[in-house]
Design a protein around this nucleic acid. Structure first.
Lengths: 260, 260
DNA sequence: CGAAAATTTGAGATGGATCAAACGTCGTGG
DNA sequence: CCACGACGTTTGATCCATCTCAAATTTTCG
């Protein structure tokens, strides 16, 4: 039956089209589900507002036009950073797929921090007007957004604790635990407890307040002790319990998370 | 004329009453003016909502009932802090008069950080419902609140930079500059460029990620070089330009501030 | 005045920084 | 396919900013 075949073809095309779009926003969807356990229809409503997707190369600064649109990281890896007058850089936090890159749209006030990609990344954009509308219609969507913003703050505060009173080993371990939980929340941790985290040791140092050399030596210790491996930009947590114990990681600040 | 005298007396009483209330909230008023240049009537509208004022002793943890009320520090000094499992404490930021103690009411999500007073302090409370109403009526009040929240985030991020890549001297200097600008914004800096900041060196250490001993030695260096003095809990900036230069302080992150 | 808290001083230890060089890996162009 | 260069990781050696421990001194306050 040609008609049916034709229909099937079209359907398949539509499906695959839909699948492609859904695929691009699947981490965002996972994140939203995780933040407030949104209904599938609500998640869909948000994801459908994602416009002007684009692919950015690694190490490109993102312009944040906080007035009109919110940027969402759909895939890849990015970070918040600050520059000091002497040219040195402090990475204030990592942005993982499903994250809203910059919550400053909530307060209107553009923050002075910068954002850049660390790997090739897909960015989606949502018009603030559309998001506002959605928030008005679905209180739970609004709660999810606010929750995300609140967690963002908690992340920075936890970084203060790390830099203020944790040792190098604890800092590295804590960050790897944090990334583990955040990646897990969007389905980016494999069965073997590993996730893709393609940062250089220099970048880790910039995030943790350590020199590249010391990051390297710390990672070696951790590898030798068998708690983690880190190769080709892939982190594998070999012994989660021991790692958590060693670095005093408590995932509470990331919101509820079922840590296996 | 007895009547006139009587009237005058009453008027005076009312005036002094009003003055007393206005006096309690004067730092809040100054802060609001500074945040968004609110009209006197708007400022008054906010200040009149301040209820259940109370005086707290030093070193008392503040319960934050984020659901119903917002706490405002009217006078004194307080701080945000986090505890690690080993009992050590990280001060995440100081709270000065006029500050809303905890912006987590904006996101509903109670943050896990703690708040405590560092000196005897006056706390005022505003019912969230009343504040919301005011924000709806006066967009500029809402902007002021959001602006405050945004600055709060900037403060934490700047602390990350301090802990991540500033030396002890820069950390101390930067904090003293920050406090100078924040105190100045609420009229708490005297003509001689000094302000009251009654923290122990141990507490400074907890905020800056330094040991008490090293804070002490760093302060001595700064005193001997003549940029600051710090006695009896009073900080005097002797040479602001030099201090700023030495610690790379740029007040931009605190919002606009006319730094003399 | 006496006790507790805070500041100051001294001496010694160390975690992590810095500098420099070797090594491995990967993409590019000849 | 190889040579090259760029980049990241690793290693070694040395240095120093800051920590820790301990005790003396000063200030605060009941």
């Amino acid at each position: 039956m040609p008609a049916l075949v034709g229909t099937r073809t079209i359907t398949t095309d539509l499906l695959s089209l839909h699948t492609a779009a859904a695929d691009a926003t699947r981490h965002l969807a996972a994140r939203l589900r995780h933040l407030e356990n949104l209904a599938p229809t609500e998640i869909d409503a948000v994801c459908r507002q994602v416009r002007r997707m684009s692919t950015m190369p690694a190490y490109e600064e993102m312009q944040k036009e906080a007035q009109r649109e919110v940027s969402v990281l759909l895939s890849g890896l990015a970070c918040h950073f600050n520059l000091m007058s002497n040219g040195r850089r402090q990475i204030a936090g990592f942005i993982v797929p499903g994250d809203i890159c910059d919550y400053s749209f909530l307060t209107g006030d553009g923050a002075k921090g910068h954002i850049m990609t660390l790997t090739t990344s897909q960015i989606g954009r949502i018009a603030i007007s559309n998001l506002t509308e959605l928030c008005d219609q679905h209180p739970r969507i609004m709660r999810a957004v606010l929750r995300g913003s609140s967690i963002e703050l908690a992340l920075v505060q936890e970084r203060v604790v790390s830099l203020g009173l944790r040792t190098a080993l604890e800092r590295v371990g804590h960050l790897l635990c944090e990334m583990y939980v955040r990646m897990d929340a969007v389905g980016l941790v494999s069965d073997s407890n590993s996730y893709h985290f393609p940062v250089t040791q220099a970048e880790l140092g910039e995030a943790l307040g350590l020199s590249t050399v010391h990051v390297n030596r710390t990672l070696q210790v951790m590898r030798k002790s068998g708690v983690i491996t880190m190769r080709n930009g892939t982190v594998t947590i070999e012994d989660l319990d021991r790692l958590r114990a060693e670095c005093g990681f408590d995932p509470a600040y990331l919101g509820t998370s079922r840590l296996h």
